[in-house]
Computed example of a mutant assay.
Amino acid sequence: MMTEQPTTDASEILDSLTGAVVVIDGERRITRMNAAAESLLHVSSRQAFGERLTQLLPALAVLADPIGQAFAEGASYTEREMRLALGPERTITVDCAITPLDGASSLLLEFEQLDRHLRISRENRLIAQNQAIRELIRGLAHEIKNPLGGLRGAAQLLESELSDDDQKEYTRIIISEADRLRTLVNGLLGPESRIEHSPTNLHEVLERVRHLASAEAPAGVEIQRDYDPSIPLLPAAGDQLIQALLNLVRNAMQAVGDSGRITLQTRTHRRFTIGDRQHRLVARVNVIDNGPGIAPELQDQIFYPMVTGRAEGSGIGLPIAQNLVNQHGGLIECTSEPGRTVFTVWLPLEEA
C-alpha cells in the first residue's frame, strides 16, 4: 500500500533544502521528492510519486545493490562520484548518501551534484571577468570619447564653412563615423544608471528577436522555437533584453552562414544558483545553432571585447550581451562542439 503524499509542512521543509532529496519505500517506489531533486533529475514530484525509482530514472540502476543492502542491514551507504546519464545530452556527476528511515522501512537518498561546484566557480569567474572588462573599458572610454567629441565638433564647423555639397559629403562621413564610434563605446559601457525593470513576457521578447533575425537571415537559415509556456513574467528592461538576445542570435546566424538551423528554447529551473546567489526560480534561454562550433582556444575568451573567430567580426556583440544580462542579475554561458553550439542565458524570475 502506497504511503500518503507528504503534508504541506513536510514538503516545505524538504523544498527549503538546497540538496536534492528523494525518499523511497520498501518497494523502491518514490514517496517524496524535493524541489532541488526535481531540478537535478529533471522530473516533477507529481510525475515521480508512486513510480519505481529505476523505472522512472534508469540511470539510478547503479544504486540497486547499495539500496538493497541498506534495506537488508538498516545501514547507511555513500556512493561517490557516480556519473548519471539522464538524457542523450545530459550527464551529471553526483555523490549519493543512502540513509534508512523508520526502521529501514524507507530510505532517504541525498544527491550532491559535484558538477554544480565547478559550474559556480566558472560563473563567478565569468562575472568577475565581466566586471574587470567594464572597468577597463570605462577608463578607455573617456580617453576615446573626448577626442571624438572634438573631432565631430570640428567637422560640423568645417561643414558650416563649405558651400560645395560634394565637399560636405566628406564632413558628413566624419560626423557619421564619430557618432558610430560613440555609440559603439556607449554600447560596451552599458547604461550609466540602473536599468528600470518592469514585468516582461520573455516569449514576447524572443518573438521580437525572432522576427528581427528572420528579416536578416538568408533563405536557407531556419529559426525554430521550443518554448515552455509556463514561464511567468520576469522583471526586466525589455529593450535591453531584446538587444542581448538579438546579439546572440546574430552570432548564431553568422556561424551557420547561408544554411543551417537556429533554435530558441526556454525552460525554468527551481532553486538555482547564479554565481553565489541562489534564486527560487530562474528562466533558461538557449540559443542553439548547428554551425561548425567555436575553436577550443577561443571558448574561454569569447566574452572579451574584440575577440572573434571571424575576420569580418567586430568582437563586441557577445560582451555587450553579457553586460546587459549581468545587469539583470543573470549570466550567459557557452558550450560548443562541431555541429552544436549553445549559448545559455540564465535570468532570475524574481527581482534582486
Rank of each mutant, 00 (worst) to 15 (best):
D25M: 07
D25V: 03
D25E: 08
E27M: 12
E27N: 13
R28S: 07
R28D: 09
R29D: 00
R29A: 06
I30Q: 00
I30S: 01
T31D: 01
T31F: 05
R32W: 08
M33L: 05
M33P: 06
M33E: 04
M33N: 03
N34F: 00
N34I: 00
N34M: 01
N34P: 08
A35P: 07
A35M: 13
A36H: 09
A36Q: 09
A36L: 11
A36N: 10
A37T: 06
E38I: 00
S39K: 00
L40Q: 00
L40N: 02
L40P: 00
L41P: 05
H42S: 13
V43L: 03
V43H: 04
S44E: 09
S45N: 04
S45I: 06
S45Q: 02
R46W: 15
R46Y: 14
R46A: 15
R46P: 09
Q47K: 15
F49M: 13
F49H: 15
F49R: 11
F49E: 10
G50S: 05
G50F: 05
G50Q: 08
E51C: 13
R52C: 02
L53P: 02
T54P: 04
T54W: 09
T54D: 09
Q55K: 06
Q55W: 03
Q55E: 07
Q55A: 03
L57Y: 02
L57T: 04
L57I: 06
P58M: 11
P58A: 12
P58E: 12
A59V: 08
L60D: 05
L60R: 05
A61Y: 11
A61C: 10
A61S: 14
V62H: 08
V62D: 09
L63P: 01
A64D: 14
D65L: 15
D65Q: 14
D65C: 11
I67L: 09
I67C: 08
I67H: 04
I67R: 04
G68L: 08
Q69G: 07
Q69E: 15
A70L: 07
A72R: 06
A72M: 04
A72I: 03
A72V: 05
G74E: 11
G74M: 09
A75T: 12
A75N: 12
S76K: 01
S76Y: 02
S76C: 04
Y77C: 00
Y77R: 01
Y77S: 00
T78K: 12
T78C: 08
E79N: 10
E79P: 01
E79H: 12
E79L: 13
R80Y: 10
R80V: 10
R80G: 08
R80L: 11
E81K: 14
E81H: 13
E81L: 13
M82A: 12
M82V: 12
R83M: 10
R83E: 15
R83G: 09
L84Y: 00
L84E: 00
A85C: 06
A85P: 06
A85L: 08
L86D: 03
